[in-house]
Amino acid sequence: MSELIIKNVWKEYGDQIVLEKVSLTVASRAFVALVGPSGCGKSTFLRMLLGQEQPTRGTILLDGELLSAEPGPDRGVVFQRYSVFPHLTVLANVLLGKELMASKFKAKLFGAARRAAIGEARQLIAEVGLSGAETKYPAQLSGGMQQRLALAQALIMKPKVLLLDEPFGALDPGMRAEIHTLMKRLWDETQMTVVMVTHDMREAFTLATRVVAFERPRDRPEEKQRYGATITRDISIWPPRLAGQNSIYGPDRDDPVVSLGQYRDGPAPSGEK
């Protein structure tokens, strides 16, 4: 399970209030898009979910437990700026999380554990559409391919919650549409909850199960220091979208006919790879 419960969260920096009275429950396997004007605290909220920052007041629970004070493998993150390591190949980038978990100092796996991790990494690389690029470096990849790599890098740890901070904003429209299709499939096929910050309303309503808007109800210049942003809209998408299930009006237009998740643990059907 991967339910998030945010209770009366405030975030302040000295005398400046960034967020106030934020309460939200995100069901397990939901896909929530956070929207709102620049500077209203969306990315700050995401960093609190990641554990990079702590609430000034209030609590954040993951599956009924207080969120740990530091980022952990239960939360993956993909930023707008590609967060891959330029000196590592595609395969090494995806393997790194597993290696760090095995040994924080040497960052290496050995023997059977390494072979199993490489097999898992190669499968994930193929699923995000980078098969054949395992030995390439990020500089040899297009922007869309680097973002696919960043997704694989986050997903190798099987996070309960995937956090996306405007991850597709720098992509051209055609590449963004491809990544949207990939993101829908990955969400369908895994057990994770997704929380995404975006300025693109079309993107929010295309991908999410809910769209949550942050705004400052008091936004005059003299009020910005003493009043923070809060949730002003919480819109559930209709018809409802559920991970792993088609819409009640049939599958989405760009959903694949056959999902890789249908045969993830076994051989592909004849003619599939």
Rank of each mutant, 00 (worst) to 15 (best):
A92E: 15
R176Q: 09
V212Q: 03
K98T: 11
A177R: 11
L61K: 08
L67E: 04
Q140T: 09
L62C: 10
R81I: 05
A152C: 13
G64W: 08
T198A: 11
H199V: 12
L151A: 13
L163N: 07
E178Y: 04
I118Y: 01
P86Q: 07
D252T: 09
A170S: 13
M183I: 06
V77C: 06
G58A: 12
T209Y: 00
G14E: 06
K11G: 03
V258R: 14
L24G: 05
T59P: 00
P240I: 08
C40P: 01
L61Q: 09
Q225T: 14
K184E: 11
G261K: 10
G64E: 08
E12G: 05
I118P: 00
R210F: 10
P239A: 08
A92C: 11
T230N: 03
Y263K: 04
Q123A: 13
L155E: 03
L155M: 14
E215N: 15
A152P: 10
A30V: 02
F45Y: 13
V18K: 01
T181K: 09
Q146F: 01
V77M: 15
I5C: 10
D254W: 04
I6V: 15
E272Q: 10
L207N: 02
S38R: 07
E134P: 00
Q52T: 10
T59E: 15
E272G: 00
R226F: 02
T198N: 07
L186H: 01
E166P: 07
R233T: 12
I60Q: 08
E203H: 07
K273A: 12
